[in-house]
Nucleic acid binder design. Structure first.
Lengths: 223, 223
DNA sequence: TGTGCATATATTGTATACAATGTAAAGATA
DNA sequence: TATCTTTACATTGTATACAATATATGCACA
């Protein structure tokens, strides 16, 4: 049996973060991870570094890797960047969307709903993010898709930290209306809907300054 | 004397690529690099991986790292992405620009001209790219700056491959007018100037389909 | 008790040895 | 000579041993 690659470990761990199975602040010791996946630390270190590049992990010298805890500023930046990239991408996608794409998107939405119905919030969150990536894929913009992937992963971290009400999850029929616009190849509508959708998510975050940073006082004083 | 870190090697090699001292297609053998910098391959591999993440290097399994050769499609994508990110960023920067920022930008432009006068095209190119990064820094958009850095490095590769006339370099007083707009905190002007500036660079590229891909026939048939 | 110091342990950082793979050279056969 | 096969070499991939650093533990002393 072939051993698992660094890239596969990266994917699995990234999905765990995306689904909030690994929460911001969680430590990932190299030994631990290497034992779980049955490979040497060499491979694990590659995977951890990959994730650090995507902004999912923060690696501190001699102190190891832990799931990143985006600051308020970073949280804002992530959504500002998405606001720049995604609406135009949605427009470009609309102009290229094929029936096959629509079918795939609809299957995707179904999955999301199923996950929600079964109370698998983390999974639903991941699928919701992948929906956005799927649109960049349709737009055939590989470079932007690459950036967007990082932004969406980080969005998941932002949501983990700053989501207003965990109980009431957004009833997301926005994705449906977006697919509708795409199926009509209506670029204007797609762009506007995406803009609104992002603003909607953004508004559901609690991005006010807060005192409770005392938790991370230790970290704050470390240097 | 302290040994050089992977990050420092990353920077030095990245600058070499940015300045076209290392050209697209150039191979970087681990042994060679490790000897040059006096460190083990372990460190070199980290650096090479870093650069691969930024899109500067392409690493093929068991075949090593070489400076990336962006395809026509990637070339287009890079400038499309820049067109989405940079104008808005210039606007944001204009609204926050301080006299100290202006001074730094002007020093920057002087350096560019000096490099041009001395015929150091590569250096001038790098400085020109850094000018754009400086604007993202002023805008205080760390996330976008991070993406932009990758895009600008890749732009350098695109220019190396697709620049129309190497002899006639763009007489760049656009940077000057941009600084002027920034100094007046004129966001609208800054945004428009940046849009035009990017279009101008884009128009100086020869991004038509070409036959001479036969050079890479070998690579094409490899799988 | 509580604080400071010294020691022990845990964890990451780096170099190196060996394995796996790819590339080039030499030889065999037609 | 041309092509295929085999062999040798060069290069990258992975695991592991050891060094460096950070964290935790125990002890002395006030």
């Amino acid at each position: 049996m072939k051993p698992i690659t660094a890239e596969e470990i990266t994917t699995q761990l990234s999905e765990a973060v995306h689904e909030h199975r690994l929460k911001p602040g969680a430590k990932l010791r190299e030994d631990e991870v290497s034992e779980v996946f049955g490979v040497s630390r060499t491979i694990v270190r590659q995977a951890l570094r990959n994730m650090a590049f995507d902004g999912l992990l923060t690696i501190e010298k001699n102190r190891g890797a832990s799931v990143s805890k985006p600051t308020l500023k970073e949280a804002h930046e992530v959504f500002q960047a998405r606001a720049l990239l995604e609406p135009s991408t949605a427009r470009a996608a609309a102009e290229r969307t094929t029936p096959a794409d629509i079918a795939r998107l609809q299957r995707h939405i179904e999955e999301e709903h199923r996950a929600l119905d079964q109370g698998q919030l983390g999974l639903a969150l991941k699928l919701s993010g992948n929906f956005h990536l799927e649109i960049a894929r349709i737009a055939d913009q590989h470079t932007i898709e690459h950036f967007l992937k990082q932004l969406i992963y980080r969005s998941s971290l932002v949501i983990a930290l700053y989501w207003k009400r965990r109980d009431a999850l957004c009833e997301n029929n926005t994705h449906n209306t977006l697919v509708e616009a795409l199926s009509k190849n209506d670029g204007n509508a797609a762009e506007d809907l995406m803009t609104g959708h992002l603003l909607n998510i953004y508004s559901q975050l609690d991005l006010r300054e807060r005192e409770e940073e005392s938790i991370s006082l230790r970290d704050a004083l470390r240097q």
